[in-house]
């Protein structure tokens, strides 16, 4: 039964409850669920993290490869974010060609991480113009109880903080048995987080469960970090066939810095 589409009646009850500022689990519309982070999901990865946001669980792993730089950035390492929505995570996911969400999550995480300048890509050069490190972040939801994108960004940020550079042998190949040569070079104090707002009727909520998320009409995700001591938005995407009004945007901009600070504090206690 869990794979059935959400009923109109459920949507109507959510709409009524949200308009009264209430949720089934007792949270306010802008409360997040409990955030927990663990490391070392795989000792074969250069870094990895498991993030739980309530019952939503996402794992992220970092792999590093030696490769050629992109022609337009010969003296910078590369960043790639990929991942998939696996059928393990939800009765909604089926085997087969990737659903759009499976493409969207890595692209949103990529923009949030890349534009925050968190990774010192210019310190990932092995031979200038020839050989650089490619940082690959792979993200897999293990249990989808809503708000995958926010959990995925935290998982990526945490895994990057946990990542170490592998040693190279005399031929320039990675030697996994030699001790690491240090941590992945990251900029001090930058730990991007995504805050997504979901709208149903006229109500806007944060961190929905899967059922709440399915009831909502539209989402907008904001990737936020700190740059020169100030909050900056690094990425944004509206998903869904509904609109956000100018006043709703202004409302979100007021909540965003505080929400970032709250999540950031929790995240930093694990870094």
């Amino acid at each position: 039964m869990s794979s059935m589409a959400i009923s109109n009646q459920t949507i109507e009850s959510f709409k009524k409850m949200f308009s009264e500022g209430k949720r089934f689990d007792g949270r306010s519309l802008t409360d997040s669920r409990e955030l927990k982070i663990e490391y070392n999901v795989s000792n074969k990865a250069e870094g990895s993290a498991r993030v739980k946001l309530g019952k939503t669980e996402v794992v992220a792993g970092i792999k590093l490869q030696v490769g050629a730089p992109y022609p337009d950035s010969p003296n910078k390492g590369n960043l790639m974010v990929s991942g998939d929505l696996l059928p393990i995570a939800s009765p909604r996911v089926e085997m087969g060609p990737p659903q759009f969400t499976a493409i969207e999550i890595p692209r949103l995480v990529d923009r949030a991480i890349r534009e925050s300048s968190m990774i010192h890509l210019d310190k990932l050069v092995i031979t200038p113009g020839e050989k650089v490190w490619t940082v690959i972040i792979d993200i897999y939801p293990i249990n989808d109880d809503g708000n995958l994108i926010d959990a995925a960004t935290i998982a990526a940020t945490a895994a990057l903080h946990n990542a170490k550079l592998p040693a190279l042998d005399e031929n320039g190949k990675i030697d996994y048995h030699a001790p690491s040569t240090g941590k992945l070079p990251l900029r001090e104090g930058i730990a991007p987080i995504t805050v997504s707002f979901f709208k149903l009727g006229n109500s806007i909520i944060i961190d929905p469960t899967r059922e709440e998320e399915e009831a909502c009409d539209v989402r907008v995700s904001w990737g936020v970090s700190i740059w020169n001591g100030k909050h900056v938005i690094n990425s944004c995407q509206k998903s869904g066939a509904e609109i956000f009004s100018a006043s709703e945007l202004e409302h979100m901009m007021k909540i965003l810095p505080n929400k970032f600070n709250e999540l950031s504090e929790k995240l930093k206690s694990y870094l």
Binding site: I233, E250, M253
Partner: peptide
């Protein structure tokens, strides 16, 4: 935007912009 009204139907972004400057964008 929907015509010349106040409703946004596309929002995307990459870069660095302070939340308080979004009203200038609006």
């Amino acid at each position: 935007k929907i015509g010349t009204g106040n409703d946004f139907s596309l929002l995307q972004l990459d870069g660095k912009i302070q939340p308080e400057r979004v009203k200038e964008i609006i």
